[in-house]
Design a protein around this nucleic acid. Sequence first.
DNA 1: GCGTAAACGAGACGGTACGTCCGGTCTTATT
DNA 2: AATAAGACCGGACGTACCGTCTCGTTTACGC
Lengths: 208, 208, 208, 208
Amino acid sequence: MTKTPDATRRSDRSRRAILDASLVLVGEVGYNKLTIEAIAARAGVGKQTIYRWWSSKAEVLLDASLALAGEAGAEAGWTGFPDTGDLAADLKAVLRATVDEFADARYEAPVRALTAAGATDPELGARFTQRLLEPQLALYEARLRSAREAGQLPAGTDLRLTVEMLVGPLTYRWLLRTAPLTHGFADALVDRVLAGVGYVTAGRPDSR
Amino acid sequence: MTKTPDATRRSDRSRRAILDASLVLVGEVGYNKLTIEAIAARAGVGKQTIYRWWSSKAEVLLDASLALAGEAGAEAGWTGFPDTGDLAADLKAVLRATVDEFADARYEAPVRALTAAGATDPELGARFTQRLLEPQLALYEARLRSAREAGQLPAGTDLRLTVEMLVGPLTYRWLLRTAPLTHGFADALVDRVLAGVGYVTAGRPDSR
Amino acid sequence: MTKTPDATRRSDRSRRAILDASLVLVGEVGYNKLTIEAIAARAGVGKQTIYRWWSSKAEVLLDASLALAGEAGAEAGWTGFPDTGDLAADLKAVLRATVDEFADARYEAPVRALTAAGATDPELGARFTQRLLEPQLALYEARLRSAREAGQLPAGTDLRLTVEMLVGPLTYRWLLRTAPLTHGFADALVDRVLAGVGYVTAGRPDSR
Amino acid sequence: MTKTPDATRRSDRSRRAILDASLVLVGEVGYNKLTIEAIAARAGVGKQTIYRWWSSKAEVLLDASLALAGEAGAEAGWTGFPDTGDLAADLKAVLRATVDEFADARYEAPVRALTAAGATDPELGARFTQRLLEPQLALYEARLRSAREAGQLPAGTDLRLTVEMLVGPLTYRWLLRTAPLTHGFADALVDRVLAGVGYVTAGRPDSR
DNA sequence: GCGTAAACGAGACGGTACGTCCGGTCTTATT
DNA sequence: AATAAGACCGGACGTACCGTCTCGTTTACGC
């Protein structure tokens, strides 16, 4: 029987300090050289306090990233996926923002680290996907569904496939650094994907 | 001054033993628990023999994967990217083969490990991309170029973008395990991408 | 200012449970592996309740041993050092009893632990000596004084030295395990010590 | 199967550094606060190098004390137990020297620590007794045997008992600090013990 | 007999050291 | 000169306890 700690007694001060320290450190030294000892030292916390609530540095970083994403969304006044009626424009806006986010060192290090660690550790990967990735993919899917219901996409469009055609190449370039990530790349990608999927602009047939 | 060892005196027996051991072990215990000590012990080799010729376990695994890819290509009678004239069919064949490869445990472990490690370590990532990834992407690009020259693709088609639209979503699903990798997924992907890019079947206009 | 707890409100139930638990545990795992946490757990007591009343596990054990010695004396109907008029017989009886006590596992573990801890920690040693040891030595000394006053020992006999000549070798064997502790050893020791000190049997000159 | 290290490859430099550091540290902070980590740090050595060759800090200290005893004996020009023919004088000389040794801080700390640790840990105690203590007791016993053969002690004298009557009270006072250790104490002890054992001065009857 | 302050059980916390594992370097003897 | 073997220094691992510090919950006095 593993004794489970009492979450109601948890020190929020320590929790925040740990998450903050892990984000700072992963940026400073990188994921591979990130150690629990260093996090504990930087956070002014005993190691056991980390081990009590997380099972590995990856889990710490996952929570830290979630908190970061939450804060970031809030401070950016993020109110959900844009829906101006112009699907192409909306997707481009979001993908451009994603490109920018990927270029922001604050997000870069932890998210890249988690993606890599999740690729290697299936269990962690599942948690990463479920908690950080899927919620975002769901937003794309919802926007596409709305477009499909508005008749801008063929009724039979595979929404999931479409989402991954948008997100996949972007992530691929970012993760593997095969080529520079630019707004132009995002725009071109959206155009090609929508063309491939049979996108029809707002009520009028595609006259392009 | 770092003394560079004399490569002509290198023990090929040890080299092979190390590469083999690293592949076996990465399959058995995973990349994170793979240690140089264990590789040396399994290969019946001194640790220094590994450090003399490689700088990290990732480099060992990269060489091992290259050797593996070479052997595999040879034994499969791989003679280059297929070019039957039917671009869609050729791409589907290759992507289906890639799906199968990703499902093969022998390749799975080392390639996944290298991809993850490369994502985290830019220098390693560059070597990984250059030596293992780019050569494959170049084959795709060549096949697309041949189609473009045959008039099956518009003259202005961005070949690189097209390649990444094919490979990106596939890799994305594999790496992040967001959904099962199937032949059907490969086929649908090829269809959408070619549609988006303005593919015209063998000289005749697209009558779809 | 260290706030001193109110002894009148002390829970006797907890106090006994702690002392009992410490004796049980020191017998089970030995002094070195005895921990305050384990005592608290075994006693069903908060750690703070131990720290409130004692400053270290040694102090707990010292109190526990004192309580044990008190109970043991009471239940053995111990009414003080025997004085039959025959000094040699009285000393042999007491030393034999001490040999038996040293062989009793109940006393063995805590007393040995305290002796060792006291040897290493002067402050604890002083308390141990004063509270547990000296009272016993005083009994020996009193008995010898009574013999000296009865003319059985020369007037100038150094009582303290004599006591330590009796108790020293016994403790030495017990503590260092250089040889087995037997009743015969106790008897021979008493005979040699009394001979060395010029013991005269009951008023008559020594006719040995 | 515990892999046993190859003693022929052992670094003597590290070995000495560890023993020296342990002696210095036990003097500085005492046995209870002596840690393997501190020894390693002070000796400029990896912890593993200590664990490779010793199983505990007590074992390190035992080896250190043996080395110290060896050096000390050598530098003091110690050529064995004195045998001037006058047993009482010889014993007094040795016991006085022991009193001085017990007062010397260099020996005090490690030997006291080992005695205490050995009292608590039977296995360690056996090694301590066998390697450090017994050899010294054997010297006493040999000197007494020589006296017995010279007719200065009764034929039936229990040599072992006699040795422990000499060493026991001395050790008792030192370890438990019941009274100050002085040369006078040593002299008186020798006198009483020899009297009790029937010592006869060199050919002449005891006319004291 | 009721309110309140202290002792209490529980256990989270910042720390220290444990004993182990492995990284990367160095040494020795072998091939 | 490269190798198998493995000792070495260093440092992070995850665990066990330390002694302190809240938390509610009894408990027993003083009003």
